[in-house]
Nucleic acid binder design. Structure first.
Lengths: 186, 186
DNA sequence: CTGCTAAAGCAAATAATTTGCTTTTAATGA
DNA sequence: TCATTAAAAGCAAATTATTTGCTTTAGCAG
């Protein structure tokens, strides 16, 4: 094969330099004024390189935000769903409703084109839910997607479409109710 | 009083011309290439006017999108919650998952700053839910926000964070389950 | 009708983006 | 190992968008 992507070597170095530059500039001057030429200068790279690889600032910031999308390590499961799921829900809400959580969502949604998914947000969450369910001795009678709909979805939509901080126990309460529903033979 | 906003007269005319120009250009050339100078030319207005009033294209498009945020007139309620709510849910999902619905969300979220709400999406939905509940003979034992969390939230988050069209009966099923939960004395 | 001022127009200055072409440099095969 | 090749980067000129200082227009109150 002659053609194809060329991920190693210089390309990689440039990508890392640019990502690092964005990250550094964000916590020096905030993400508001940030421009492509600024990032390029900081990364020691030509603006046109950035434009050609990422098209614009929104796309670049979305790319960086996705990188920082870490799988949140949950508190150690104790084995009881009615304890572990609400505990995780509370932590998840705090994480998403925090300043960095909201910033991440902002960056990711700026680059959304309206057709494909904005980012694989749920792929980071599903394994955690699964591992909590696995840790539960009780056999599980529901789908992971149902948990997402019941506890993750309200958190995300309220962040986007309501003002002020979320009710502190929103996700926790949702998780408690969800477990209760499915414990009594749903 | 001497100072204060000046909503009438020329300002209003300019605002309307600009909004109309955006709308017209969107369905002529799509929303992808759209620039401020283009809109200004079409509206018969100077670019600087637009920059000063809206700061940038994203903000302008968000403004226009919010205007088109109509209160969806629901099918006539028959009076039974277990029929009306699922029917409305299905319609709502279709509306939001459609091309214009997604476009509206895109425009609205582009202008989101991460702190305040992106738009009053729920204000358009709450009256509809309330009127459906009012039409129901049965006394209602739940909160409007609970309906939003249960049926609207999953639709919106899946549009944003999953690929492909939604499961056709997602919102309907959620509504059915919700009504069932609250009918049996929840 | 007159004065006041928010908002619009205009145009020059600045900054960002695009683009054609050249150079560098991983990756491939001899 | 070394020559070949093309993807990706650099550079700079051309284009386009954005900002800004100042001027003009036109609602609104008296």
């Amino acid at each position: 094969m002659r053609s194809g992507p060329r991920p190693g070597g210089r390309s990689l170095r440039v990508q890392e330099a640019v990502h690092a530059a964005v990250t550094a500039l964000i916590d020096e001057t905030g993400r508001e004024g940030l421009t492509v030429p600024q990032v390029a200068a900081r990364a020691g790279v030509t603006p046109s390189t950035i434009y050609r690889r990422w098209t614009d600032m929104a796309t670049l910031m979305r790319d960086v935000a996705q990188r920082n999308l870490r799988v949140d390590c949950p508190l150690k499961p104790c084995g009881r769903l009615s304890v572990d799921l609400p505990a995780w829900a509370e932590m998840y809400q705090e994480e998403m409703d925090s300043t960095p959580g909201r910033a991440m969502m902002r960056d990711v949604l700026r680059g959304w084109d309206g057709t494909q998914k904005a980012c694989s947000l749920f792929d980071a969450v599903r394994p955690t839910i699964v591992s909590i369910c696995d840790a539960a001795g009780e056999p599980v009678t529901f789908d992971v997607e149902a948990v997402i709909d019941a506890v993750v979805a309200p958190v995300l939509t309220r962040i986007l479409f309501t003002d002020g901080p979320l009710p502190a126990t929103l996700a926790r309460d949702a998780a408690v109710a969800f477990v209760a529903r499915h414990a009594s033979g749903g």
